[in-house]
Design a protein around this nucleic acid. Structure first.
Length: 768
RNA sequence: GCCCAGGUGGCGGAAUUGGUAGACGCGAUAGACUCAAAAUCUAUUGAUGGCAACAUCAUGAGAGUUCGAUUCUCUCCCUGGGCACCA
């Protein structure tokens, strides 16, 4: 038996798919604004094209969504499964600093590698819509959206303390400097005062919190976003000129002191009046009260709050028990505190979108006119940022010095660039209309892809919709996912997008760890190169392996030794297909020549297992239970091969154990997982069209149900034997069967059990 | 400290409206084929005892509810992730 030659076959079908363009999504036509059939927009987080090439973690997410996309196509959907590059960012720039190579050239090289690797894996991306955030035609619109934010006052420059990383020489967003540590390099960050561009995401805090009710996200994602936004309902109360914030205003009669934010614990020497008790109480400063939370001041209720009590005991402040309870708003007014801060949006770096603002001494900050967009990144000699905290762009005086668009006087360009989160905040919109030069995407296409197949009828005010299914990493929950929701809502308010939320359904894959369960990293040297796996085992094997290795949403350790199991499965599928061919040749039968749908075929044991498997695969894919799906298909192949061994294949008179029709149905449900081998076998068995263009098989409910079933017989709750019964057999009959069983008789003392519990079609428990 | 997700063989993991724990895969052991190896196939593979039939124990620990608990309740331990003098 010739082994499966994955190299030859994979190349062949890659070419064929590319030639036939079968994965290109159809936009609504100009005339009707409609495309026949239902649409489906599936999305993965577009990769950052790093110099290391594709990571096995990318493959996990991409393969999962590829399986779903391929299944949807076979179910008759017009599927959009796009790909692009989130190519601005620090690693490329650092590489440029080290080697002097232009970031654009490095990016080109890296995207070429990624593209080759992704194509090798057989993903059904619509490559005609490929986008790149560093392409001026793309970032023109990133800048354009920024200008809209600026015009609405949501982008502003403010002097503020920022998280400064002394190693990267860059200001970081709060989200990137959690715990005072730089997200990128792990260095301790410093607080530096600097004028920064900020985006007023806090203006959307309440809606970002509330609208989580509109979307289908995993609970852990929603919880994490809610915690990050940190909405807290309370009351602000004036103690003379000091306004305090509390979530427990009913305890105000117990307040015996006030604490305002400070560096060290100390009495300020002043007293204020408690509006409830009318008593004079002391004002303290303390570290444990933070300026940025609430109003930066609290009332101390030592009788009710453990931390206040500790403070009171330490400084001998009075503690009253048994005080009167107040109503919620008796002494103050409702005040909602959000933990979320505005988004620090500028970076002192080269490799990012220039911020399209011109600073004029007379006119102030003036937006670059839209007709002058994009503001292109100029060529620069050195990519190194300076210690003074200025972007390398600041050194190009020819570029920096310009005319004020308003007064035509001397003016300077903004030299800070945008963070890498900018381009990714709206990229899913661009995919719907990637070549549009007049707008970031046409409303017609946005409506079609975001609202659904009946969309053209609906008004843009409709709130429902978004990308149908978006899979990505948990690490983006409080970054990209939150940022893009904010941008989307802003565009929604401008009536530029048709939905209130960007993504209808979000799922998250678990991380792939290195062997032994440690994180994969270059320094540990445990990074797996997908190219080598594809070369040795083939793309189908790698896809199957990554889907089989564990539950999709949980992290799992890589194990090269285990890949062979997935390869063996592929080989088995290949062997079975080749046995059909052999029999075809020796028997002279033409394929497909076996009468399908005959009684014998329908009732064979393989048909039963097949129909059960179709059902399981169809349902489990929707829940992303890929591991159990593959397990079921493995069992089916083992059974099919056994049936073939018995030599009953192609003789209809003898009652078919495995018909070629059944085998083809199996190929169809395997196709989304292993597109190459199934395409090849499909063609070999006489099909003229591509397997991807065939219809997803349906299961026969009658064949899924068993007539005879085996149930466990327990004595005192312990399984002692099992009996075969008819499905839904009468309880009395089952009891009779169980009580006449040899093993059961052994346990019965006098033949009269105390009690019998029968759970229909499942178990019978006898208490002797 | 708080919130979320977990803890099952040598390993990755199946199984939950409470109903045969360990599916499927890896690894391991033995055998078939082969000059040999690889590949493939077959059998065995949670632990203990037994030639065997079989029995006992076993899903982080301990208790509870139940005819019956990996699944439900309580207490505790551990791992991963998130938040944190948060008023």
């Amino acid at each position: 038996m010739k082994n499966y030659d994955h190299k030859k076959i994979e190349k062949k079908w890659q070419n064929e798919w590319e030639k036939k363009k079968i994965y290109q999504a159809k936009d609504p036509s100009t005339s009707s604004g409609r495309v026949a059939g239902k649409k489906f927009y599936s999305l993965i987080e577009f990769p950052y094209p790093s110099g290391e090439g594709l990571h096995v973690g990318h493959i996990r997410s991409n393969t999962a969504m590829d399986i779903i996309s391929r299944k949807r196509r076979m179910e008759g959907y017009n599927v959009l499964y796009p790909i692009g590059w989130d190519a601005f960012g620090l690693p490329t720039e650092n590489y440029a600093i080290k080697t002097g190579k232009k970031p654009a050239i490095v990016t080109k090289k890296n995207t070429d590698t990624f593209r080759r690797q992704l194509k090798a894996l057989g993903y059904s991306f619509d490559w005609s819509r490929e986008i790149n955030t560093t392409d001026p035609k793309y970032y023109k619109w990133t800048q354009w959206i920024f200008l809209q934010l600026f015009k609405k006052g949501l982008a502003y420059k403010a002097k503020s303390f920022i998280n400064w990383c002394p190693s990267c020489k860059i200001g970081l967003a709060n989200e990137e400097a959690v715990g005072g540590v730089c997200d990128r390099c792990g260095s301790k960050t410093e607080k530096r005062e600097k004028k920064q561009w900020m985006l007023a995401i806090t203006k959307y805090a309440d809606r970002l919190d509330k609208d989580l009710n509109l979307v289908d996200y995993p609970e852990r994602v929603k919880t994490q976003q809610r915690n990050w936004i940190g909405k807290k309902n309370g009351v602000s109360i004036k103690f003379d000129d000091i306004e305090i914030f509390t979530t427990r205003p009913e305890t105000i009669f117990g307040a015996t002191f006030v604490v305002v934010a400070g560096e060290k614990d100390k009495f300020t020497g002043r007293y204020v009046t408690n509006p409830a008790t009318k008593e004079e109480i002391p004002v303290w400063e303390a570290e444990y009260v933070m300026a940025e939370v609430g109003t930066g001041a609290i009332m101390g209720v030592p009788a009710d709050d453990a931390r206040d009590r500790e403070f009171a005991e330490k400084y001998n402040l009075p503690i009253v028990e048994n005080y009167k309870k107040a109503g919620f708003e008796d002494f103050g007014k409702k005040f909602t505190h959000f933990k979320l801060r505005d988004w620090v949006f500028s970076r002192q770096r080269y490799w990012g979108e220039p911020i399209p603002i011109i600073s004029c001494e007379k006119c102030g900050l003036i937006p670059v006119p839209e007709k002058d967009l994009p503001v292109k990144l100029p060529e620069v000699k050195s990519y190194k940022p300076t210690d003074s905290g200025e972007s390398p762009l600041a050194s190009i005086s020819k570029w920096v010095n310009t005319k004020c668009p308003k007064c035509k006087g001397k003016a300077k360009r903004e030299t800070d660039t945008m963070p890498n989160w900018a381009g990714s905040s709206w990229y899913y919109l661009r995919y719907t209309d990637p070549k549009n030069s007049k707008e970031f995407a046409s409303m017609k296409n946005l409506k079609y892809w975001l609202l659904g197949s009946s969309a053209p009828k609906r008004e843009p005010s409709s709130q429902e919709g978004g990308v149908d299914w978006y899979n990505g990493g948990m690490e983006h929950t409080t970054l990209h996912l939150l940022y893009s929701r904010f941008w989307h809502k802003f565009l929604y308010d401008l009536k530029l997008v048709p939905t209130a939320e960007p993504y209808q359904k979000r799922t998250s894959h678990g991380m792939i760890l290195g062997e032994g369960g440690v994180k994969m990293s270059k320094s540990v040297g445990n990074v797996v190169n997908p190219d080598e796996i594809v070369k040795t085992y083939g793309a189908d094997t790698l896809r199957i392996y990554e889907m089989f290795m564990g539950p999709f949403e949980e992290s799992v350790a890589w194990n090269t030794e285990s890949i062979i199991g997935s390869r063996r499965f592929i080989e088995k599928v290949w062997r079975i297909g080749n046995k059909f061919l052999k029999q075809k040749n020796s028997s002279g039968l033409t394929l497909p020549g076996v009468p399908s749908g005959t009684h014998t075929v329908q009732n064979s044991s393989i048909s039963k297992i097949l129909n059960k498997t179709i059902k399981k695969v169809s349902e489990d894919i929707e829940n992303m239970h890929f591991n159990t799906t593959i397990s079921a298909m493995m069992i089916l192949t083992t059974e099919m091969e056994k049936a073939l061994e018995k030599g009953q294949t192609l003789n209809p008179q003898k009652g078919l154990a495995l018909s070629i029709e059944d085998y083809k149905k199996f190929l169809q449900i395997l196709a989304p997982f292993a597109p190459y081998i199934t395409e090849e076998l499909w063609r070999m068995l006489g099909e003229k069209n591509l397997i991807d263009l065939s219809s997803w098989p349906k299961w026969d409910e009658n064949l899924v149900k068993d007539q005879e079933i085996t149930i466990a017989v327990q004595i005192n709750g312990k399984v002692r034997t099992e009996i075969i019964i008819q499905m839904n057999e009468e309880e009395e009959e089952v009891k009779k069967k169980a009580l006449s069983d040899q093993t059961v008789l052994k346990y019965l003392i006098d033949g009269h059990p105390k009690k019998i519990i029968y759970v229909k079609n499942k178990v019978i428990n006898i208490l002797p």
